[in-house]
Design a protein around this nucleic acid. Structure first.
Lengths: 134, 134
DNA sequence: TCCTAAAAGGATAATAATAGTCCTTTTAGC
DNA sequence: GCTAAAAGGACTATTATTATCCTTTTAGGA
């Protein structure tokens, strides 16, 4: 339960690798993929998602590639994980009040909410700089 | 991410319902299923798992059914969830040192460990009595 | 301008997990 | 023995995950 998918695992590996590189170095997807041992085609999809929300910046064409979208210490693990896995929702109930018909009489509700808060809290406090180990 | 499956959701609903019933009342699976709105055949599998590890006691034949295996305040939500979903493992790395080849140089590792501890901690502090709302 | 490099996007396929059903067997009471 | 009820096994359907491949867009350089 609560397991990160491959996609999430790959996403973290890939962007952490980027964070270990010199700030202005434009990295090829193929190089990143090789370095972190992830299928390049799959990592491409992941980085596209990153790119859309500005976690990385991409450059096309010759000399193209990827750099971090912000300084490594301003990107949290929470952002990275949620970018590819979607929001952290231990239970559908948690989404929004009223979402779940059992809402009113469901005591389990607030427990999952606490889980959500705790998990987010842990992940939010970790930045790519921490993970890059520099 | 980190979403409880239907199975887990059903499991919680089913056993919480049991906890709301008088302690010595033997409940029919079919009644529980109807009460918590879960397919009876599916709930049957879930209660079999509960039964194996003593979370519930089952009686076969006429007059048979289920009762809690222990007092409601001595069954935690963690036990219930892990019974059907397996252990709470946010990342394979967390399982055991050496499981993951990236182990040594992986800074993400201890973060997932913290997530695991936090989640377990929340779920462990909630008992079926709390959830039954008595 | 044309060629090449590289990411973006779309479609599709393979595998695995989830969710659920159905049938037979065992156990127990009447 | 008949019936009630859980246990167990086998199977199916649906959905999510984990990819792969091909085409398109963008950019740089000869």
């Amino acid at each position: 339960m609560m397991e990160l998918t491959r996609k999430g695992e790959y996403a973290v590996r890939g962007i952490v690798y980027l964070a270990t590189q010199p700030e202005d170095k434009v990295c090829l997807l193929s190089d990143i993929a090789a370095a972190v041992d992830v299928p390049a085609t799959f990592l491409a999809k992941i980085f596209q998602q990153f790119s859309k929300i500005g976690l990385v910046k991409s450059y096309r064409g010759t000399g193209g590639g990827f750099v971090l979208g912000r300084a490594a210490d301003r990107i949290t693990l929470l952002e990275v994980v949620e970018a590819v896995e979607g929001p952290i929702i231990p239970n559908r109930c948690v989404v929004a009040p009223g979402e779940c018909p059992r809402d009113v009489f469901c005591n389990v509700h607030p427990v999952w909410k606490r889980v959500q808060v705790q998990v987010r809290d842990v992940l939010e406090k970790v930045t790519l700089r921490d993970l890059a180990g520099l």
